[in-house]
Computed example of a mutant assay.
Amino acid sequence: MTGIIDVHTHYVPKGWPDLSTAAGGGSRWPWLRVDSERDAMIMIGSDEFRRIGENCWSGERRLAEMDRDGISAQVVSPTPVFFCYDRPVDQAVRVSRIFNDLALEICAADPDRLLPFCQVPLQDPDAACAELDRCVTAGHRGVEIGNHVGDRDLDDAGIEMFLRHCAERNVPVFVHPWDMPDSPRLQRWMARWLTGMPAETHLSILAMILGGAFDRLPRNLRICFAHGGGSFAFWIGRVDNAWQRRPDVVGTSRQPPSSYVDRFYVDSVVFDPRALRLLVDTIGPDRVMLGSDHPYPLGEQPPGQVIRANPLLSDSEKAALLGGNAQTFLGATPPGS
Results as ranks from 00 to 15, higher is better:
Asp6Trp: 07
Trp16Gly: 00
Leu19Gln: 05
Ser27Cys: 00
Ser27Tyr: 13
Ser27Met: 11
Trp31Asn: 02
Val34Asp: 08
Asp47Glu: 15
Cys56Val: 08
Met66Cys: 02
Ser72Lys: 01
Ser77Trp: 15
Ser77Gly: 05
Asp86Gly: 12
Arg94Met: 01
Asp101His: 03
Asp112Ala: 13
Val120Gly: 06
Leu132Asp: 08
Arg134Phe: 02
Thr137Lys: 12
His140Asp: 07
Arg141Phe: 08
Val143His: 10
Ile145Tyr: 00
Gly146Tyr: 04
Asn147Trp: 03
Val149His: 08
Glu160Tyr: 06
Phe162Val: 08
Arg164Val: 00
Val171Asn: 06
Met180Pro: 09
Trp193Lys: 01
Leu194Glu: 14
Ala199Trp: 13
Glu200Met: 12
Ile205Asp: 10
Ala207Lys: 11
Pro218Trp: 14
Arg219Gly: 15
Asn220Met: 04
Phe225Met: 02
His227Leu: 08
Phe232Tyr: 15
Phe234Ile: 11
Asn241Ala: 11
Trp243Gly: 00
Arg245Asn: 13
Arg246Tyr: 15
Thr252Asn: 01
Pro257Asn: 12
Ser259Val: 05
Asp267Glu: 03
Ser268His: 13
Leu276Gly: 02
Val280Trp: 13
Ile283Thr: 05
Leu290Ile: 07
Asp293Trp: 03
His294Pro: 00
Leu298Ile: 13
Pro303Met: 12
Gly304His: 06
Ile307Phe: 03
Pro311Gly: 06
Ser314Lys: 05
Asp315Glu: 15
Ser316Ala: 13
Glu317Asp: 07
Ala319Arg: 15
Asn325Ser: 11
Leu330Asp: 02
